[in-house]
Design a protein around this nucleic acid. Structure first.
Length: 268
DNA sequence: GCTAAATGTTGAT
DNA sequence: TCAACCTTTAGCT
């Protein structure tokens, strides 16, 4: 689930479900017992997403304000649903609950109480996030245009730009017709701005739909309901024919993840 | 019932 | 380059 679109959607939905009123917080794990106890009964005042990082602001009845940092990592989940909640079970890191809604956080890489200063430190390490209205692509271009690293690795670097994961990197490079192995310094400015604009569009659409779909309508079967297996051009389609040219989709490891690309459509 | 894989990141070698 | 961490699920036997 978790690329930037998931986190921004979660930020919005958590605020809708729990914002501006006291929330019950609980956990089944010792490691977050103290944290959940501190949050319990406090009011969720603001939620904020930067790239794949989610911040929840709580106002406690008394002393200090609370700030929770959540990173879902590779397989974290935080589903929200209407009351009544099921009996808590499994590896439940954090349950938020009020009269109307509940949400269970499982498997996150990070779920911790932090200070505003620690949040600043995290934000300082992140490149521009295409989902933030104020995002400026210039600093990312400054990095890319000077780098020998392959563009397929640069797009995954959260300190170059943030919120992009393995699906969006593979798909945006396919849509741009760019070989993932090409060094960043050999990408021209128009190509970069084309990818940036495309990422803005694709991520926004991902937030809206709650899932990633990167195939253009004309490249999907037109009849019947949209199918999951028609959502991507190359991601997880190793050995299958390219939707455009029929060449077998290839895979290899790049930036510690499986990279997928079409050697014909993305020849240079 | 077991294993591998997954839309991620960090830190050691 | 590799291992570690977090958890669930799909695909085997």
């Amino acid at each position: 689930m978790p690329e930037g679109h998931t986190i921004h959607r979660l930020s919005r939905d958590l605020m809708r479900a729990f914002g501006r009123r006291p929330v019950l917080a609980s956990t089944l794990q010792d490691r977050f017992a103290a944290g959940a106890a501190q949050l319990n009964g406090s009011t969720l005042t603001r939620t904020d997403a930067h790239g794949k990082h989610l911040f929840l602001f709580f106002r406690a009845a008394r002393p200090v304000d609370r700030l929770v940092h959540i990173h879902l990592g590779l397989y974290g989940k935080f589903p929200i649903a209407s009351a009544p909640p099921p009996e808590p079970g499994g590896a439940l890191r954090l349950r938020l609950q009020n009269q109307d809604n509940w949400a269970d956080l499982r498997g996150p890489t990070a779920c911790e109480l932090i200070t505003p200063e620690q949040r600043d430190t995290i934000l300082a390490r992140l490149g521009p996030d295409p989902l933030r209205p104020d995002a400026d692509p210039a600093p990312a271009w400054a990095r890319i245009s000077r780098s020998k690293m392959p563009i397929g690795a640069l797009l995954m670097s959260q300190d170059v730009l943030s919120g992009i994961g393995n699906v969006y990197r593979a798909e945006v490079l396919f849509r741009a017709g760019i070989d993932p192995h090409r060094p960043g310094r050999e990408v021209d400015h128009d190509e970069w701005m084309g990818m940036w604009d495309d990422l803005c569009t694709l991520l926004r659409s991902g937030v809206r739909a709650g899932r990633i779909v990167t195939t253009r309508p004309e490249d999907r079967p037109r009849r019947g309901r949209p199918r999951r297996e028609d959502s991507f051009y190359v991601y997880r389609r190793t050995g299958e024919p390219c939707r455009i040219c029929g060449t077998e989709i290839r895979t290899e490891t790049m930036a510690t993840r499986n990279l997928f690309w079409c050697p014909t459509c993305q020849a240079t």
